[in-house]
Amino acid sequence: MTMSRRTLLAGALAAPVLVKLALVPANAQTAAAGGVSQVVAIQRLKVGEATVTAISDGFLAIETALLSNVTPEAANEILAAAFVPAVSPVITGVNAYVVQMADQTVLIDAGGAGMLPSLGQLMPGLEAAGIAPDAVTAVLLTHLHPDHIGAMLVDGQPAFPNADVHVHEIEAAFWTSADNRNAAPEEFKPFFDAASAVVETYGDRVKTFTGSAEVVPGITARELFGHTPGHCGFLVGSGEDSLLVWGDIVHVAPVQIARPDIGVAFDADPETAIATRQAILAEVATERTRVAGMHISFPGVGHVVKGSQDGTYVFQPSPWTYDL
Rank of each mutant, 00 (worst) to 15 (best):
Gly203Met: 10
Thr220Cys: 11
Ala41Trp: 10
Ser118His: 01
Ser242Gly: 14
Pro133Phe: 07
Glu240Pro: 15
Asp164Met: 14
Glu287Phe: 06
Ser318Glu: 14
Gly150Glu: 02
Gly226Pro: 04
Asp310Gln: 13
Leu153Gln: 04
Pro85Trp: 00
Ala129Gln: 03
Glu127Tyr: 11
Val94Met: 09
Ala33Phe: 12
Ala12Glu: 06
Ala275Tyr: 07
Val154Phe: 12
Asn76Ile: 05
Ala194Leu: 14
Ile219Asp: 00
Val52Gln: 05
Ala31Tyr: 10
Ala178Ile: 11
Arg222Phe: 07
Ala135Arg: 09
Ala273Cys: 08
Ala12His: 03
Pro161Ser: 05
His303Gly: 10
Ile219Cys: 08
Ala172Gly: 00
Ser56Ile: 10
Gln104Trp: 12
Leu281Trp: 00
Gly203Leu: 09
Ala282Thr: 04
Pro146Trp: 08
Glu214Thr: 07
Asp147Arg: 09
Ala173Phe: 03
Asp147Val: 14
Glu240Asp: 14
Phe191Thr: 07
Ala65Arg: 15
Leu45Phe: 11
Leu324Asp: 15
Val264Leu: 14
Lys46Glu: 09
Asp323Asn: 12
Asp57Val: 03
Gly35Leu: 06
Leu144Arg: 03
Leu122Phe: 02
Gly233Cys: 08
Gly111Gln: 00
Ala268Thr: 10
Ser242Val: 06
Asp248Thr: 06
Pro190Arg: 01
Met115Ser: 13
Gly233Pro: 02
Val106Cys: 02
Ala265Gln: 12
Gly58Ile: 11
Pro89Thr: 01
Gly111Tyr: 05
Asn162Gln: 11
Phe209Cys: 01
Gly93Phe: 01
Ala50Glu: 06
Met3Leu: 10
Ala178Ser: 14
Gly111Asp: 00
Gly203Asp: 03
Trp320Lys: 12
Asp248Trp: 06
Ile78Gly: 01
Phe266Tyr: 09
Lys20Cys: 10
Phe234Pro: 03
Val19Phe: 13
Gly226Lys: 05
Met1Ile: 11
Leu122Tyr: 01
Thr30Gln: 15
Gly93Trp: 01
Pro229Asp: 08
Leu243His: 00
Pro158Ala: 06
Arg181Gly: 03
Phe191Trp: 09
Thr137Ser: 15
Trp320Thr: 14
Ala14Arg: 08
Phe59Pro: 02
Val19Trp: 10
Ile262Ser: 02
Asp204Glu: 09
Glu73Tyr: 06
Leu235Lys: 01
Phe83His: 15
Asp164Trp: 08
Asp269Ile: 08
Gly247Ile: 03
Val291His: 00
Gln157Ala: 13
Val94Glu: 01
Val90Cys: 08
Thr312Leu: 09
Gly150Ser: 02
Ala33Asp: 10
Phe209Ile: 06
Val291Ala: 02
Glu287His: 08
Thr2Ala: 13
Val236Asp: 06
Gly311Pro: 08
His166Tyr: 15
Ala213Ser: 11
Gly311Asp: 00
Phe266Ser: 12
Glu127Arg: 14
Asn182Thr: 12
Arg277Ile: 05
Leu119Asn: 02
Ala86Tyr: 04
Met123Asp: 11
Arg181Asn: 07
Val106Gln: 01
Gln100Glu: 13
Thr321Gln: 15
Met115Tyr: 15
Pro161Gln: 01
Gly300His: 03
Asn76Asp: 15
Phe160Cys: 00
Arg222Trp: 14
Gln104Leu: 11
Gly48His: 03
Pro319His: 09
Val199Cys: 12
Ala15Phe: 05
Ala22Phe: 07
His227Asp: 13
Thr92Tyr: 00
Glu73Leu: 14
Gln316Gly: 04
Leu243Ile: 04
Ala65Phe: 07
Leu141Thr: 04
Val255His: 04
Val245Ile: 15
Arg288Asn: 13
Arg277Pro: 03
Gln38Val: 13
